[in-house]
Design a protein around this nucleic acid. Structure first.
Length: 251
DNA sequence: ATTCTTGTTGAATG
DNA sequence: GCATTCAACAAGAA
């Protein structure tokens, strides 16, 4: 489920191999992996995340991973099914990029700054400041849901966590984002951070998502953890958005 | 058999 | 240009 919190988790996996010398890399899927230079003999010097992208500085090279819908990165796993890319290190460690649906990408870039420009990515959801967020909201006519999912405006939020952020903020997913009251924008901003950080915490501590979150109830038979109403759903941008029509009022 | 699914892209539309 | 929507990509689950 690679939205920002998942990629943050994969970053931790990659960091287990920081400083290790690469013995060789293997691609099992040319559709996903596009590497020109050999990484043999080089070391991972830095790992960082921006939105849903993971970056690995490998001496002079910069490797980028995007996980699509089903990609994941695991250190020292024996899992072989759907393996697309593997990095083997001299000391025996390995990093495995696994993807069932093969919609992700592994490639190299020359410059991170240039990459951001070319992709027109918005600020990372965990780093965006309130002023910037506020201005972005005021300029847009889109719905609250598509605003949160638009990577050009804010990077890192996808279908599942946008539902959660709107639920925690008590905002109806189809509300026009520029109609939100200022105090509601502030609530939304705070919940972007709160939800992402809470999910990251759950993942890192290997605990379930809190039960007062929508996510554990985010299904066709779900019951709202706050008011016990039946969870509703609606299609937005050809994705299913779950919400509580009792708690999530328009503004 | 058909429909659904966590993501992005590029084409098409208004 | 700009904002927005849709099909396509792929494969497995229900």
């Amino acid at each position: 489920m690679p939205e920002l919190p998942e990629v943050e988790f994969y970053k931790k996996e990659a960091e287990k191999c920081l400083g290790e010398e690469i013995k060789f890399t293997t691609s099992y899927c040319s559709k996903i992996v596009n590497l020109k230079n050999s990484l043999k003999g080089k070391r991972i010097t830095k790992v960082f995340r921006y939105g849903k992208y993971l970056f690995m500085q490998i001496d002079g090279n910069c490797l980028v991973m995007h996980f699509g819908m089903t990609g994941k990165l695991i250190c020292n796993s024996k899992e072989q099914k759907h393996l697309c890319f593997k990095m083997d290190f001299k000391n025996g460690k390995s990093l495995l990029y696994i993807s069932v649906r093969k919609l992700g990408k592994v490639f190299e870039i020359k410059s991170f700054k240039q990459f951001l420009k070319e992709k027109h990515l918005g600020k990372d959801a965990l780093r965006i400041g309130y002023k910037e967020f506020y201005n972005s909201v005021k300029n847009k006519k889109s719905t609250a849901k598509s605003f949160l999912m638009n990577q050009h405006l804010i990077s890192g939020i996808g279908n599942i966590y946008s539902d959660e952020i709107l639920f925690q903020s008590k905002i109806y997913p189809l509300s026009k984002i520029n109609h939100l009251l200022d105090e509601k924008i502030e609530v939304l901003y705070k919940n972007v951070k709160l939800v992402l950080n809470e999910v990251i915490k759950s993942k890192f501590e290997n605990k379930p998502i809190p039960d007062n979150f929508l996510i554990p109830h985010r299904n066709k038979n779900g019951i709202c953890p706050v008011c016990k109403n039946k969870i509703k759903y609606v299609k937005i941008l050809s994705r299913t958005s779950y919400f509580c029509d009792n708690c999530q009022k328009i503004y």
